[in-house]
Simulated scan of single mutants.
Amino acid sequence: MASLTIKNAVKRYGTVEVLKDVSIDLQDGEFLVLLGASGCGKSTLLNMIAGLESVTGGEIMIGDRVINDVHPKDRDIAMVFQSYALYPNMTVAKNIAFGLEMRGIQKAERQKAVEGVAEMLQISHLLDRKPAQLSGGQRQRVAMGRALVRRPEVFLFDEPLSNLDAKLRLEMRTEIKRLHKELSATMVYVTHDQIEALTLADRIAILKDGSVQQLASPTEIYNKPANIFVAGLVGSPPMNFIPATLVEKDGITHARLSLNKDTDNDVIDLSLANNDADITEYGGKEVVLGLRPEMITYVNGADVNGQQTILSNVDVVEPTGADTLCFLKWGKHDVMARVSSAIDVGSGDQLAFSIDMSRASLFDPQTEERI
């Protein structure tokens, strides 16, 4: 395996700049997920690493070797596609072994390698079948087997699970996670599914309009998003964004929320005493307060030590199984809360909800960057 370095990568189609000065340093054995909406440039970047797209500017390196002008077959990478790309006239065994055969590997060695990968992926009983006789999940395992059997320096995955149903996606996520742990392989994985990103990645690179918005661990991206775009993209249900003003009370900075639809007289002040945001330059200024739904919960079902409460009207209730989502009215603001399914709550109820301000995010309303 090897490290992967992307230095100031640029991709243009004519005058259209699809990737803008992208720099990512991936360590040997690290699992990187490229996350973003369609058209953000993530698949283009993956194809540039694979050699399927040319590099307009910057460098891409595997180990200490610059591969900008290296032919795809000489890059020592393996790619797993969304469409599986299996040969329909070949058996599973021949599909897996095809790349080895093209590289001149002897038959006995090919057979041994295929059997080893098939056992790892639990598809040994399928080796004599053809792709048409396989389910979607089985086909994806074969596609992964074809990549794994080569033992390349870098594995590339282009939305490999998007054609599978929810249950199979969960199973295959677990399988990919297990394989990464077993192989200690360097992997780059493209997806628009935030759950895949959060569960699989060592680090996530979030792209928007060809630029990296944040490159960090899943925990950091979820708890400390770099800007409003990242905060809104990652998290299901999404983060609540509420206009607030920072005010000083008894020597402590508070986020002041206006709860009245028509006037600013009805306000609530939420203490930021336990929040680590650098707010020294924002006294008296407007900010955007970011609260994830799980930071707002029913007071009887929460540890309220040091937390604050808001008496809230419940507008809509959505049971999700383990949790219940409550859509609240905080005056002129619509806010989503997450409570335990054991809590008996219904539309029209008025309840006290606890607010965990220690985990709140604050954003500059002009730049939309995290404070």
Score class of each variant (00 low, 15 high):
317 V>I: 12
296 I>A: 06
264 D>C: 10
256 R>D: 02
290 G>R: 06
275 N>L: 06
249 K>S: 09
281 E>S: 15
355 I>Y: 00
281 E>I: 03
297 T>K: 08
299 V>A: 12
280 T>D: 15
298 Y>E: 09
282 Y>F: 15
338 R>A: 06
325 L>A: 01
279 I>A: 11
304 V>E: 01
301 G>I: 03
259 L>I: 07
329 K>F: 03
259 L>A: 08
273 A>Q: 14
297 T>C: 02
329 K>Q: 13
250 D>Q: 14
291 L>A: 05
355 I>E: 01
323 D>C: 04
330 W>S: 00
296 I>F: 03
355 I>H: 00
285 K>G: 07
258 S>F: 03
350 Q>Y: 00
305 N>A: 08
265 N>H: 10
266 D>A: 03
344 D>H: 12
290 G>Y: 00
327 F>L: 15
301 G>F: 10
300 N>I: 00
344 D>Y: 08
265 N>W: 00
337 A>T: 08
254 H>Q: 11
281 E>F: 14
350 Q>V: 13
265 N>I: 06
289 L>Q: 01
275 N>G: 13
296 I>M: 10
258 S>R: 07
344 D>P: 00
342 A>E: 11
324 T>E: 03
316 V>F: 15
279 I>Q: 10
329 K>T: 13
333 H>L: 14
269 D>R: 02
351 L>C: 03
355 I>W: 01
329 K>E: 15
330 W>G: 00
280 T>L: 13
318 E>W: 10
249 K>R: 15
341 S>F: 05
267 V>I: 12
258 S>C: 04
276 D>H: 11
341 S>I: 06
324 T>S: 06
251 G>W: 14
262 D>A: 12
282 Y>S: 08
324 T>H: 03
327 F>Q: 15
341 S>P: 04
300 N>Q: 10
260 N>Y: 02
301 G>Q: 10
333 H>M: 11
330 W>K: 01
303 D>Y: 02
285 K>V: 05
334 D>L: 10
250 D>C: 07
322 A>G: 11
305 N>I: 03
332 K>L: 08
305 N>T: 13
348 G>C: 12
265 N>E: 14
320 T>Y: 05
335 V>T: 03
311 L>G: 04
285 K>F: 09
259 L>S: 02
296 I>T: 05
284 G>T: 06
337 A>C: 12
282 Y>A: 15
352 A>S: 12
337 A>K: 09
348 G>V: 13
257 L>S: 02
282 Y>E: 10
283 G>A: 15
294 E>A: 06
286 E>T: 10
255 A>K: 02
265 N>A: 05
309 T>E: 01
297 T>L: 02
275 N>R: 08
267 V>F: 00
274 N>K: 15
311 L>Q: 13
348 G>Y: 11
323 D>F: 05
336 M>Q: 14
263 T>D: 13
267 V>W: 00
320 T>V: 05
302 A>I: 01
311 L>F: 01
324 T>R: 06
356 D>P: 11
340 S>M: 10
345 V>I: 14
259 L>D: 03
256 R>N: 10
274 N>I: 02
301 G>W: 09
327 F>R: 14
288 V>T: 14
321 G>N: 09
275 N>H: 12
280 T>V: 14
354 S>E: 04
270 L>P: 02
258 S>T: 08
284 G>F: 09
259 L>W: 09
340 S>Y: 07
346 G>F: 04
311 L>H: 11
351 L>Q: 08
330 W>I: 01
287 V>Y: 05
317 V>Q: 08
277 A>Q: 13
341 S>G: 02
253 T>C: 03
324 T>A: 04
